[in-house]
Design a protein around this nucleic acid. Structure first.
Lengths: 145, 145
DNA sequence: TTCTCTGCAAACGCTTTGCACGGAT
DNA sequence: ATCCGTGCAAAGCGTTTGCAGAGAA
């Protein structure tokens, strides 16, 4: 079963399994992060979810995502200063940020390093690999000009 | 010649070569970033340099580092939200952040991917690879307890 | 009731911006 | 006189915190 096929009960069970009380807001935020392909910022989550949940506050989104991070339900990505983006914690992969359009892509990667849990004597618990450049579609636009 | 062996005239020439007017403050900041092993935050640079240059302001450090980044003289590292750290732009390497002591280490790495300039059709201009975990020396302390 | 979750408002911390002063040419 | 660099003060912006009210058990 992929994340996209999970229904509300599956999501609820997932949260409970991690020791998180599945409130309405938490479920909706969890669903959003799991089911959208984007790596949303808090602002993006807020602007999308508040359409359906008008009373939702950013504070709740921050609270919820911080809770999820503690429980390793999602991972926070820091590609650039300021804004943090969130990603459902799945198998290690790389991110590609387009400096032209700002889009963030997933890149499938499989290094030997990524499966090791120690490097230079340090114990590794998290790996982050991201690239910047100009994405395929922006390259296409450029060549058309 | 390594960075550590450069004298003030070498530094001055480096800046001029990149089209940066080598003012006193810029030179000192450049020297600091090149010659210290740490990956300093603006605060660290400020607290260290302002001992010798009491009039130095953080604004100037921000201005200078932003200028250096535009000219690709230094690279900004964003390991965690908020604070940005700065690194002299040299050959690609990975960073390891210890979640126990907060120390940031350089890790020598050499993937095939790192020498490629395109991935999945995107043109890559920057690569960032960082790990988190518990560093060698903190592991040692733990086992002594 | 009691405990947790929510969300407004205010505080916080890092960074940027506006602007005037000062130094160099 | 002009131009650019510097640095104070204030604004900006993402995030966190304080706290009171709502809701579940």
């Amino acid at each position: 079963m992929t994340f996209h096929e999970m229904n509300m009960d599956d999501l609820k069970n997932s949260l409970q399994k991690e020791g998180v009380n599945p409130s309405f807001q938490r479920l909706k935020i969890y669903e959003y992060v799991l089911k959208t392909r984007v790596h949303p910022t808090v602002d993006k989550i807020y602007s999308d979810l508040s359409k359906k949940i008008p009373t939702l506050s950013k504070t709740t989104i921050y609270n919820t995502l911080n809770l999820f991070q503690e429980k390793n339900i999602v991972a926070g990505l820091t590609i650039e200063g300021k804004k943090v983006r969130y990603d459902a914690a799945v198998k290690p992969h790389a991110h590609f940020k387009c400096t032209a359009c700002g889009e963030l892509y997933d890149i499938p990667v499989d290094f030997p390093v990524l499966s090791s849990d120690s490097v230079s004597g340090h114990r590794v618990t998290e790996m982050h690999f991201y690239l910047k450049g100009v994405c395929r579609s922006c390259l296409g636009v450029q060549t058309q000009v």
